[in-house]
Design a protein around this nucleic acid. Structure first.
Lengths: 174, 174, 174, 174
DNA sequence: TGATAAACGAGACGGTACGTCGCGTCTTTCT
DNA sequence: AGAAAGACGCGACGTACCGTCTCGTTTATCA
């Protein structure tokens, strides 16, 4: 859909704040009313753009090599690498801002990170097979992701070992 | 200062999005120019309001009872309780949105959570005294806070054991 | 025809300005396209509504009692009475507005006042029979009607003798 | 004032219908709000433009040569000549449309034709000096102007003798 | 103490974007 | 096949705020 593509393009270019309905309409070659007919707000546009995978890439389905720590480290490293690429930290912050303002964006965002579920399942399996001890899986995943978010909000540097260090801490033997 | 108080009042009432320079000027009974003379933007107002402690309460200096896990659990429980009170989840999300949009707000925010440092120091001390094993302290604090932030963004419920579960996970014996 | 009736109804209710194609379509329970198939514009609708007698009543065919002055006075009095009724001054102004914007409405309007011809004929006959002296009949009729129009545009009050005074002036012995 | 000048310019170019607030704002190099701050509507703009003499020329103060018929004929001829110039019939119709829609425009219009008063006074004087017999002066002036308006609305041709014929009819000895 | 200047409240200004209405064209759906 | 329904691109509406810019009017200093 041209409108969602325009939304994604402008979101990437100018962030959530710089995203305007008129801008999207112009970029998509469409009347404003047509947008309002189908989406109630800027946030709804972003939420759907997110759901359609136009705004954020598929964030790295975690592998399943049997070695959970290695798998998680790899996944988180991918995330960190992605954010480390120029502009992507701003993209993440824009997504956080949009999520803070609108629940449906937040849902879209975290579903996009479907990985949240995926990762949860993966870890649950590891727990079940005795690979790791019983853990509050949801909190663990939130902590892992949250650490990245907080770091991004603080505009702190992310060094090369960040992912490894974080996973090591979270998964260290009990 | 009347202006910062007005800022804080409106921030609490309407969130970051609903905060306007004209609104602050009117609420404070002040000309817009007077605001612009000292603050360059809405974000700057919020950042200073944060620094002055007008927007967020002192977030619970962590105690030092000797038992780190108990201290952290108590601290996080306080945070969780605060967020659990009606309207405060929205306040947190507004702060996250503001932080995402403006670095100085993010700094103000995380400094306000001075606790970040404080907590860091406290844990570093615990590490130093051998109370707990070597840990990447900064990441650990970010993970703890990040878990709360992510949960708030996802509008997920926070049950009574959230704090205990999270701290237990993060601090379990190595 | 439902469409013209809807037009007339809305014209009376909301005036020419408040008349919209969408409103007519809705009021008539008809698709817009169906209207456009037969009428090119709002004005065309009004012009035809006028021609069909749905918008303005038959404006009082002038009697022929032999006494021209009496006949004209009666006719004009009828006109004035009509306009004097609540809402009808607005109707007249709406018709004037529509006429000013669209030639075919003007034609419809003045034909509806077919009386213009009728009156003209009547007066021409009076001239021919020597009942009154030679007169520029068309100008006279226009002056008579024009006086009413100008008075309506100025929103001036119309007293009871207006018609008599006007006819007396126009028809006084040469 | 730039805004009223822009109004006059666009009114002349595009008529009352083609006059938009955005157009005026753009033409005057002004924000829309600035217009709305001072004028409540398009009509109010036109009314004031009229009052300031930017839309219509001073319509020909009637002379006072002692010969009323000659003076009136000359005046009316001027009016007719003005309307006869290309575009000016449309201007007149636009003014009529605007007057029909808005009382204050009508007032502005008829005051601009201050001549209405002026002419009235002039004729009243003629009546007082016995130059002509008692006449309902206001109605006479309205009839004279109204004849022109009606002719313009009907888009009828105005021949060279129109003015003379009309004045002769209206002023013929009683 | 009286002038003088800085900071102030008020709010007008040129703008951008909002969300809505109606235009005239077009496409789909049902009869 | 023809009509209702209504989506579409578009342009204008009237409003909210933006950040800048005069305006007088307090204050407050120091000559």
């Amino acid at each position: 859909m041209a409108i969602l593509e325009a939304t994604a393009r402008l979101f990437a270019e100018r962030g959530f704040d710089g995203l305007t309905m008129e801008g999207v309409a112009a970029e998509a070659g469409v009347g404003k009313q047509t947008i309002y007919r189908w989406w109630s707000s800027r946030s709804a546009l972003v939420a759907e753009g997110l759901a359609e995978g136009l705004i954020m890439p598929e964030w790295f389905v975690p592998a399943d090599s049997g070695d959970l720590r290695a798998d998680l480290t790899l996944w988180l490293q991918n995330v960190v690498d992605f954010i480390g690429r120029p502009g992507n930290d701003a993209l993440l912050r824009s997504l956080v801002a949009a999520s803070a303002q609108d629940a449906s964006v937040a849902v879209g965002f975290s579903e996009r990170l479907g990985v949240l579920q995926l990762l949860g399942d993966r870890m649950q399996r590891a727990v079940d097979t005795g690979d790791i001890d019983e853990l509050p899986v949801e909190e663990l995943v939130e902590a892992m992701l949250g650490a990245v978010v907080v770091r991004a909000l603080r505009r702190g540097p992310v060094d090369d070992d960040f992912a490894a260090r974080l996973v090591a801490m979270l998964l260290r033997a009990p």
